[in-house]
Design a protein around this nucleic acid. Structure first.
Lengths: 97, 97
DNA sequence: TATCTATTTAGAATTTTTTCGAAATAGGAG
DNA sequence: CTCCTATTTCGAAAAAATTCTAAATAGATA
């Protein structure tokens, strides 16, 4: 929740990579960890928690796994923010910043 | 230059505020400083340098002023990146991350 | 030239973010 | 119940970003 939190979350290359992975299919924490050989499970967990706080992903538990899934809707909010600068179609200037 | 640099640059609320100011009209460094009563001129200069490195703004000198101006085109790149997640119209997956 | 104004750069201090290993939690399997 | 597997949380260390003051730069004006 909160635009700033979202922008902070996607500002990191590793977190963006996680989002890209989740674009294809939902994955368990462990499966995501396997895509980051240079990071510990604890660190990946930390990044996932930031993405979750930013509503960019959701989690659901099954057995002793935690599956993560993309929440695509937040990206529309970012696109809307960008649009105001690109001589955008609609001239919204409501939000913060 | 570089998507990561751009995303980092816009991840900060104060820098986003600077972009919003420059959306209306070009401003000198000093005029921008006046909009940030809690920051020193040096700090604002630091933020402007990050925005410039990210190609989000351009600078031009006149007398002993430096004017900053928005470069709107970069925002289209960000929107394109976002679009890949929103069941986007075109299914590009070229770039990094 | 000497000085004033606008701005940046340098160096150091502070704050925030990222990272790890170890311990905690939680649920499944034997 | 005991052990194993998946994952997170904790506490501390390391790295990166932000901020400041003071000094440097550059151009304008007297």
């Amino acid at each position: 929740m909160g635009f700033s939190e979202t922008m902070k979350a996607i500002s990191d290359p590793q977190r963006r990579h996680m989002l890209t992975l989740l674009k294809q299919e939902r994955l368990s924490a462990g499966e995501i960890v396997q895509h980051f050989p240079s990071l510990s499970a604890a660190t990946v967990s930390y990044h996932l928690s930031l993405l979750k706080k930013a509503s960019l992903i959701t989690e659901s538990k099954y057995k002793n796994f935690i599956y993560y899934e993309l929440n695509a809707s937040v990206f529309e909010e970012i696109m809307l923010w960008c649009a105001q600068f690109t001589g955008g179609t609609d001239e919204n200037q409501n939000e913060a910043d």
